[in-house]
Amino acid sequence: MNMALLIDGSLVVLILAVAIWTIAVRDSFAAVVGYAIYGLMLALAWVRLAAIDAALTEAAIGGGLTGVLLIRAAVRLRPTESVVAGEMPGRFVKALAAVLAGTVSAALAVVVLSLPVPAPTLAPQVAGHIASTGLGNAVTAVLLAFRAIDTLLEAVVLIFALIAVWTLTPDNFWGGRPGPKYDTDPNGMLAYLARLLPPVGIVVAVYVLWVGADLPGGKFQAGTLLAAMWLLAIMAGLTEAPPIRRRWLRGVLVAGTVVFLAIGFAGVPLAGAFLAYPEGFAKPLIIAIEAASMLSIAFTLALLVLGPPERSEHS
């Protein structure tokens, strides 16, 4: 057994072990922490599968932002733990559930083992057409050129999710600020980090965005970094979450999608189809879309983590 197999085998065992622990452990907070760890190990698995863009995204969003979201929730829901734990089903149900879930897993395993060899792939087609996009990163080319509609709709998904979250606002707080007022020691460690890290984070984010055209990276990863920096500043009390009533905020949220749509529709007269790029201009247009989207994504992700408004504008 060579080194690579050993590494992969150990990683798989670790991932499954953490996953089982996450499901089985009694305390919800512990399970959430377990999930954050699981997310990071999964990012390693993605690296081993040679999908660096996915690894970056999983680490940032799957492990990072989802972890923050779930930890905040687990802490707030602590008082309900024991009450709800009483609803745990009995042994028979657990056994039946295990059998059903196990059968599904087994069926999937059979399919995995019987996938065709050689595997059907679209890599040759991507390689054949990537030159016209001017990009070097095949994943970015797929996201913003070949399957741009999915990325466009994805931005719409984020907006819909935010609208759905905002619908949950109590009526008397409508238009107010999401999240609590954070009362942090202005001379403490958190405030210090929040002053130190964001400038670095912003530079790294812009770099990740720029380099995403030719190397792993792109607007999702960059946007998540920006969102994290902003959340850090908010949680350290350095800045306040804006009231959701503000026009500028709503404008920023939709800006990425609007730019995407505008360039998409411009493609009809200029390049013959919606979401097509005119000859030679593909790369600058793609970078423009990515830049605008990065800002929108950053704001949307941060607001999704913060949740619906919990206090009025002027508190």
């Binding site: 057409h129 070949f146 189809a273 097509a276």
Partner: peptide, 13 residues
């Protein structure tokens, strides 16, 4: 039928 971006499936949508 409309080919988005002018790309033909399976590459495009």
């Amino acid at each position: 039928v409309y080919l988005l971006g002018g790309w033909v499936p399976p590459l495009g949508v």
